[in-house]
């Protein structure tokens, strides 16, 4: 087994003068073995995701990137971390700046991470345009989307724009926080299909917070179940959700609403 890209090692997190949000959480994310973080609201899923994204520092334990502790002070390493680890949010109405064109939104990682810095200045714009066009094409948006603004798109299309931004730097890992739960059912399936396709074609490892076990089953080969800030069960998705051992996991699997059975 290859070395994990991101690893949380015995991570704990607490806000000042508050009970711990996370306690002793260890999770490994290896190439192609995406992990779904499931659990009730308040279980600490989103906090864990923020730690894995380097947006907050754990109170105890360590977050490792390519085997070394992630240090926010090391700018060069943070840049390669940011390039390799991108994110998609739950609410596509909040995650796109309403005052920027889609081209500008999608190209933000290219500019901020200085990915086109090696090119001579005049060629940068053209290169950025090509990268944006390629990313938009990959998420199934028309070419003319680049010149338009977020409010001109539906929720599902906005989520595609957000995904385009997340893949434009050609990351290895995509950390997504409930990427489809704000979308309508039919849109939801299309975005899940898109993420599955990107996973195959780009070797993207998808790590995701989700309460929707069907989405989890479709996208992530591994599951970690969190309850009150602790991982109570983790392993292969089929094993954990197919025959859950922990009481909470069992309740979770039982609770998934299902369509009435098809007549035999």
């Amino acid at each position: 087994m290859s070395r994990p890209i991101i690893e949380a090692r015995e991570v704990g997190f607490a806000y000042r003068r508050a009970p711990a949000v996370l306690t002793d959480v260890s999770i490994e994310i290896t190439q192609g073995r995406g992990v779904a973080l499931v659990g009730e609201s308040g279980a600490g899923k989103t906090t864990l995701l923020r730690l894995l994204l380097g947006l907050a520092t754990p109170t105890t334990g360590r977050i490792l990137f390519d085997g070394d502790t992630l240090a926010p002070g090391d700018r060069r390493r943070m840049r390669s971390f940011r390039r390799d680890v991108q994110t998609v949010f739950q609410d596509p109405y909040s995650s796109l700046d309403p005052r920027q064109s889609v081209a500008r939104i999608v190209s933000e990682p290219l500019r901020s991470l200085g990915l086109l810095r090696d090119l001579p200045r005049p060629e940068r714009r053209a290169a950025a345009g090509e990268r944006v066009a390629a990313a938009l094409h990959a998420v199934g948006l028309p070419e003319d989307a680049a010149g338009r603004y977020p409010h001109e798109f539906s929720g599902g299309q906005r989520q595609r724009v957000a995904i385009a931004r997340a893949i434009v730097s050609e990351p290895r890992v995509l950390l997504a926080d409930e990427p489809v739960s704000a979308l309508d059912v039919s849109t939801r399936v299309r975005i899940v299909d898109l993420l599955a396709e990107l996973r195959e074609t780009r070797g993207l490892t998808v790590v995701m917070v989700s309460h929707d076990l069907a989405v989890v089953a479709a996208l992530c080969p591994q599951v970690a179940v969190l309850e009150r800030g602790r991982v109570v069960e983790q392993g292969d998705t089929a094993a954990v959700l197919g025959s859950p051992r922990h009481a909470y996991t069992r309740r979770l699997v039982r609770s998934v609403p299902r369509l009435p059975a098809r007549p035999a």
Partner: peptide, 22 residues
């Protein structure tokens, strides 16, 4: 049909899990 299909598709992902285990 599309709505039912979408719901069935998600359902199927879960069903596969159960089968894989059995």
């Amino acid at each position: 049909r599309e709505l039912v299909g979408s719901a069935r598709e998600l359902d199927a992902a879960l069903d596969r899990l159960g089968e894989g285990e059995r």
